[in-house]
Simulated scan of single mutants.
Amino acid sequence: MFETIIYKTEGPKAYITLNRPEVFNALNGKILEELHQAFNKCAEDETVRVVTLSGGNSKAFCSGADLKAGLADPNLGNILLSHYNPLILGMRNLPKPIICKLNGVAAGAGMSLALACDIIIANEETYLTELFVGIGLMPDAGSMYFLPRIIGSQKTFELCSTGRKVFIPEAVQLGIVSKAVKADDLEAEAEKLADQYATAATKSIGQMKSVLNRTFENNLETVLGFEAEAQTKCGKSEDFAEGVMAFLQKRPTAFKGK
């Protein structure tokens, strides 16, 4: 079905793998479209409770936009509006956790793609870079939204205006990356986290994402309202009923993600 990515599911776990290793998983119209379709499949498939996004066997997670392929439209804003933005919005609005398994370099829009995930586990030997300024552009595909919320305005300006490499130990310190592991341990660590989310209360995690997406643009009173609305939905879920029963019966939970 897909040409530039690999999509597979194993029970409640979905795996989306960028599959253009010959160009270090550079992004063109085709792969952006297929990524959008894959995340839509995850949203529509009620059995999927966690998604892992990775760069597969490529030396890079994603090297950014495929400049060698040329521009489909000289108006770069049109390209963002038609291809990048729908994908990023689809990822953020997906009511299920997305793990980024950062196997290699995440550069430019590739860094934006990683930031759009909910949690990043990275090979400790790699780095991220907002290299847009090196070709006379500014960061896009969500970087100017995600980064300031993680590291603040001044640090975002520094990283974006210099385009310097942020190696993983610093990325962990800044809060961009959740965990750094040795390259040989990356697969196992990502899978361990996927297993945890695959048996978690998926509905509540989806509501967490929904509220977090709106937190910074609203005042406390409004966010308190969002929390109340989301908690009402969680309280009507089967997982909540199971969680309370398991607590009362002093046994492990058996969440179904419903």
Rank of each mutant, 00 (worst) to 15 (best):
S237N: 03
T215R: 09
V223P: 03
A180S: 02
N213V: 06
L193R: 09
A198H: 05
E187F: 15
L193Q: 05
E187M: 14
S178T: 11
Q196D: 10
G235I: 10
A200W: 09
E187G: 11
A201T: 08
F226H: 09
E221C: 07
E217V: 05
Y197M: 12
A200N: 02
V223Y: 01
E189K: 02
L193W: 10
K203P: 06
A171Q: 00
D195R: 07
E191P: 00
M208I: 07
E191S: 12
V172S: 02
K179M: 11
L220E: 14
E217M: 08
L212I: 04
A201V: 09
T202S: 04
G175I: 04
G206S: 06
G206R: 06
C234Y: 10
S210V: 07
A198I: 00
A188H: 04
T222S: 11
T232W: 10
T222V: 12
R214G: 04
I176A: 00
G225S: 03
A198N: 02
L224Y: 09
V181I: 03
A194H: 06
T199F: 13
E229V: 15
A171H: 00
K179S: 02
K179C: 01
G206F: 04
G206N: 04
Q207S: 08
E229S: 15
G235F: 11
G206V: 01
Q196A: 15
A200K: 07
L193N: 03
